[in-house]
């Protein structure tokens, strides 16, 4: 088998929120634009477009990543989860309900990224304390809430009090 030739675009096949997706994407397309513009899943936001704010956070193969810092072609063969996948069966997750109960959002711009980062944390560590939550959310910037209610909402899920 010869060395694969570099190409301007690539046919990618991946799983997005449990559904198989096949697409021909230009190599220069960012994953976040593929998700938003090609797949129409606009829950994933673009804040800074420089890897700093975390609004674009999704899961690739079960771990959180900033989708503005990946090319769509890099996601070939992976399993992606976006915020739309959380309540896929029409029912909010415990974390989403907790965000609601704790007033963990104001404008909501950062919320999809916060939910994806916190979901990844809770999958690894179902009962995080406040410090662990703060470390896990370090890559997600919120310019409205001051974080207190967000952190409380995540801790409450682990405590089973939400």
């Amino acid at each position: 088998m010869g060395t694969p030739a570099p190409a301007r675009s690539r046919a990618i096949s991946l799983e997005v929120n449990g559904e198989a997706v096949e697409y021909e994407v230009p190599a220069r397309r960012l994953l976040v634009h593929f998700i938003r513009d090609d797949l129409g899943l606009t829950g994933t936001h673009v804040g800074c477009d420089t890897g700093n704010c975390g609004a674009c956070t999704v899961h690739v193969d079960g771990v959180s990543v900033k989708s503005c810092m990946l090319l769509a072609v890099q996601a070939d063969g992976t399993r992606i989860a976006t915020v739309e996948g959380l309540a896929a069966d029409g029912e909010l997750t415990a974390l989403q309900r907790s965000f609601n109960e704790h007033h963990a959002l104001q404008c909501g711009y950062c919320t999809p990224g916060m939910l994806m980062s916190a979901t990844a944390l809770l999958e690894q560590n179902p009962h995080p304390n406040e410090d662990e939550v703060r470390v896990a959310l370090q890559g997600n910037i919120c310019r409205c809430t001051g974080y207190v209610n967000i952190v409380e909402a995540v801790v409450a899920v682990g405590e089973g009090t939400s």
Partner: peptide
């Protein structure tokens, strides 16, 4: 625009 390759 850029070309992309994934060597094995």
């Amino acid at each position: 625009e850029v070309d992309y390759a994934r060597p094995a």
